[in-house]
Nucleic acid binder design. Structure first.
Lengths: 237, 237
DNA sequence: CCAAAAGTGTTACCTATACACCCATGA
DNA sequence: TCATGGGTGTATAGGTAACACTTTTGG
């Protein structure tokens, strides 16, 4: 099963195991308040260590994929969705993350647009939970989720990733609800609207969202690109 | 030398090689203008691939060290200096970064305070170059340096890492010169001074820097901590 | 006294924020 | 018509940038 080494020094020089994990965020209306809240999927561990506990989706790194591709595949297999946003979070490599062997995990975080069908794709081994109430997780995954939340909030405050939670067309109120859900505070609708209007990447359509109880709001479109990385580095591999 | 595998599928499942590299920034007065500029150390490759070319300091990952420790050791061995600032940059894992085998590199970036002695620690296999003129490097190291520069500038604009380039006590003009060197533009001394003064982490001493040609400037001290990570995550492993 | 950097004062402008107000629609 | 969210107007405060000005030292 494992490669054998001729002597001790070769064994010491062997690389740690390498794994990929993903923190996948989606926005879903709360059952109680109806307002959107942050959710993420977990998978149940079916072997030791931490057998039976919930953990972030992930798996061992293979030779044939780039890091980004491995993370995207991981996301697809877990949620059935294509990533609207995918970015590297951090490489975790502490000595005692896993009790059995040394594992270095490269963690990605993603935003997906929750289709009704895909969210229902739960099973005995996959469940979605609120991001702020995951319960105890395997390995150091609680820390990882906390850090991912911090990065998400940080990017949200000045950045334009909010749109990746939404579909092609959206109301400005929907964008505001994304902000409120992620930052966990209320935002003045009037000022928020003006801030978005000054951004050249927001384009008004001539459509209105019908079917609401009140005045139909105008729909807008996001025309920016912003891949999951710093500007000028279109595909960091 | 290399472990052998029983069949093809096991070989495919073998992990990629794992390496650590560091981008080490130091500020040194330019030979021509006298103003401080950004420099970094390179090492000459003594084996294939890219034998004879210059590359970032680095080496294979070992079982016994955390990622942070491995990077710190790497830095010490190359510069002889302790890191004033050390933070993970990115994990690079493209399929064709190395022509021979698949390598995933976890790259750290560091700031050091250049002592005269340490900067002189050059040899046939180690040289310091200006960060904006490294020449062609081995592997994808040119991209990595570019990305590290982008992160450095980004953190500098709002953050407090500038002090890690300096000693314990410094003049406000010295801080300004750090900004100007990194951001590559001039900064208004009057406004810059006021911005720093409002920051509570800057503490005035009652000492003045003597020996200059003009009015002796007051010395200040930095009392913040800011480890190399996001707030609340004191030691991401 | 002069040059030059240290350090202070003043003003214009821009943006975040608070909040009053009108508009359009379903019920 | 009323309730409610969509959308506009406006006054205020705080921060940034530009730049004139005073202070203090070495030569």
């Amino acid at each position: 099963m494992f490669p054998t080494y001729a002597n001790v020094s070769e064994r010491m020089a062997a690389p740690p195991a390498l794994a990929i994990s993903t923190v996948i965020f989606a926005l879903r209306p709360s059952a109680v308040s109806g307002r959107p809240t942050l959710w993420l999927p977990l998978v149940k561990r079916i072997r030791e260590p931490f057998e039976g506990m919930w953990a972030l989706p992930g798996g061992p790194m293979t030779q044939a994929e780039s890091l980004q591709d491995a993370a995207a595949r991981n996301l697809r297999e877990t949620t059935g969705l294509a990533p609207a946003y995918l970015e590297q979070l951090y490489a975790f490599g502490g000595l005692h993350r896993s009790p059995s062997e040394r594992v270095v995990s490269i963690v990605y975080w993603a935003l997906v647009q929750p289709t009704e069908a895909a969210m229902a794709q739960e099973s005995a081994n996959v469940k979605w939970v609120r991001a702020d109430a995951t319960g105890p997780l395997a390995f150091d995954h609680n820390e990882i989720v906390e850090y991912a939340l911090w990065r998400l909030r940080n990017k949200m405050t000045y950045g334009s990733i909010a749109y990746h939670f939404l579909g092609e067309k959206f109301t400005l109120a929907a964008v505001r609800e994304v902000y409120e859900a992620v930052l966990n505070r209320s935002v003045d609708p009037a000022n928020f609207r003006r801030q978005l209007m000054t951004a050249p990447q927001i384009e008004a359509t001539d459509e209105y969202l019908q079917g609401g109880k009140h005045r139909p709001p105008r729909l807008y479109r996001y025309t920016g690109v912003e891949a999951g990385g710093p500007p000028g580095f279109h595909q960091l591999s």
